[in-house]
Amino acid sequence: MATLDPTSVKRRSPLNQRHVTSHALFKEFGGNLLVGHYGDIKSIQEEYSQAQMLAICDLSTLPRLGFKGPGAPSWLETQKLKLPTLPNTAKCQHTGSLVAKLSDQEVLILSDIFALSNDVATLSHKAEIDHQNYDKQTYILPRGDSHCWLAVTGTQASEMFSKICGIDLRSHKFAHGDIAQTSVAKTNAVVIRNDLGSTPGFYILSDISGVEFLWDCLLDAMQEYGGCPVGVSALQRLIKSS
């Protein structure tokens, strides 16, 4: 499989150094460069099985965006987004994007992991026009830049999380669509339960400047359960095969 040079694009995940060391094969999705899979180590099929058990995946270069302010929820609804009712819950859109409500005045929008939907780009563009003067109490938050985006998947994920996160993330306590703003390995993080097909999945959004530390902590924590990094192709397969 042909791979792309991760420095051929200008927007680069801080984890690229680690990915390259792990023989990552990079692939482009909607203009964003992600690890397709880790070539020398496992095939996509093996990574797919790995992701069902326990795996971590870097999605930091995929689009995402935040909105904040008293006017933000109603404006987003005028943009045809279906917002969850309760704070700290997330809702999947028909486009595949995920809309996470962090408070009554704060929403986070994550691209689908195929980068097929244009929601984030469209909203970003629209908001810049509508809210140039910031007088309608709707403010864009650069979540795509400030926060990394990691996915942890697999049946062992919640058990692994219990080593580094003080919140009960087990399936029957933290359901698909639940959100916890909490601390993971002493780092502030937003944890979103978002299953990929029938496989339990968690998104972690955390300060991007600390992502290498967090990545290392997660790898350390998942070692005893046989977890390891996988590329985005394995995650995509989890969704496709469901």
Partner: peptide, 11 residues
């Protein structure tokens, strides 16, 4: 009031 019951180390 926003996030529910948490360990006090989160505050």
């Amino acid at each position: 009031p926003l996030n529910g019951k948490r360990n006090i180390s989160e505050f």
